[in-house]
Simulated scan of single mutants.
Amino acid sequence: MVTARPPRVFRATGAVVLLGLSAVLAVFLLGDAVVRSGPVNAALLAPWPLLVVWGVYVAGVASDVRADATGVRVQNLLRRTWVPWGRVDRISMRWQLEFALYGGQVLSSFGGPARSRPRRLGVGGEKEHGNAEEEDGIAALHRLRAESVPDVGDAVVHGWDWPMIWTGLALGVWAVNAVIIAH
């Protein structure tokens, strides 16, 4: 019997840091706009830096791989695909993480784990402490797949990240209205 554990989440390295930096920059720019030209003009300028922050979030943080004992969910930008482990033929890394499915399909992931680089030899010819093989993301996915109970009957499910789509549409409508009001 497979024990229920929360899914393991793999994100692109540095995505959260980039999101934080872009959010700080957006707050700074909007604060400067409020001080220099007032809250009305700042409201007309606001959708543009917010669209940039939204884009960084969608591309970096939301694009991830979540795996548990039942399968793996890959989110690329706004598209989500859930694959049960029984449908995965192999997991490999080319330019990005790829799941080869039975039937010949290949599911590539924008975000997700990467292979650890080999550790340098420290003083005395011993390996440095750090990313051990057990911390490698690809190895963790292989372990989760090996621990699962394969059920070939489940289907691959495709879907959309609707909350992020609606947020992007709202920001787009706000930006169009700001252009119309400004002209």
Rank of each mutant, 00 (worst) to 15 (best):
D64C: 09
W48E: 10
R90V: 06
A100W: 09
A100E: 15
R87I: 00
Q96K: 14
L97E: 09
F99V: 08
S109L: 10
L44A: 02
S92M: 11
V106W: 08
A69P: 01
A100I: 07
L107T: 08
A46C: 01
Q75N: 08
V53G: 11
S109Q: 12
A46N: 00
N76C: 03
L44Y: 07
A43C: 11
L107S: 09
L45W: 05
S108Q: 15
G103W: 10
A46V: 00
V61Q: 12
L101T: 04
V74F: 05
N41I: 03
T70I: 01
G104L: 12
G111T: 05
R87F: 00
W82R: 15
L51I: 06
V74P: 08
N41A: 10
Y102G: 05
N76Q: 08
R79N: 09
D68N: 13
G112E: 03
A42P: 06
S63Y: 11
L51S: 07
T81M: 07
L107N: 09
M93G: 04
P84Q: 03
Q75T: 15
G71Y: 01
W48Y: 15
G86E: 05
A43D: 10
G71C: 04
W48T: 14
V65H: 07
V88Y: 03
Q96V: 11
A69V: 11
Q75V: 13
R73D: 11
V65W: 05
W85H: 12
R79M: 06
G112R: 00
W95C: 04
D89S: 14
R87Y: 00
V65A: 06
W48M: 15
R87N: 03
W82Q: 13
D89V: 02
P47W: 03
R66K: 12
R79V: 07
G103S: 09
